[in-house]
């Protein structure tokens, strides 16, 4: 039990005040960037979409790294593996649907 507590403390000691504040600030910045880009009509459509999606993905990474401590997982890294697989399926569902439904001659 003592060893568990120690492990937990070690795992969460990386979750320090500094890393949470840094994560918070990064999230705010990564929210402001696409907001500014969109609301001020600064770029053409494709560029704007890319900016929006890239900042969103970066913010996802910030959450994963700074708040959800995905790097501190001891092996085997099942959390990471299941997340990666989820992302693969996510992309399949979204992109697959768009592909099939866009070229679907029966669809409205």
């Amino acid at each position: 039990m003592a060893s568990h507590q120690q492990n937990e403390h070690q795992a969460h000691s990386h979750g320090s005040m500094k890393s949470y504040i840094l994560g918070f600030i990064l999230s705010i910045v990564l929210t402001i960037i696409p907001l500014v880009a969109v609301l001020n009509d600064m770029f053409n459509k494709t560029t704007t979409i890319v900016i929006v999606l890239v900042t969103a993905v970066l913010q996802l990474l910030v959450q994963l790294l700074f708040f959800m401590h995905i790097r501190e997982e001891d092996g085997p890294r099942y959390n990471l593996i299941s997340l990666v697989f989820a992302v693969v399926i996510l992309l399949t569902i979204v992109i697959g649907s768009i592909w099939i439904m866009t070229y679907n001659a029966v669809a409205v």
Binding site: H12, G15, S16, M17, Y20, I21, G23, F24, S27, I28, T31, Q63, F67
Partner: peptide, 12 residues
């Protein structure tokens, strides 16, 4: 976003 941060403070 802030509430996500404050839940982190709770954990700390």
């Amino acid at each position: 976003l802030t509430s996500s941060f404050t839940s982190g403070l709770a954990l700390l």
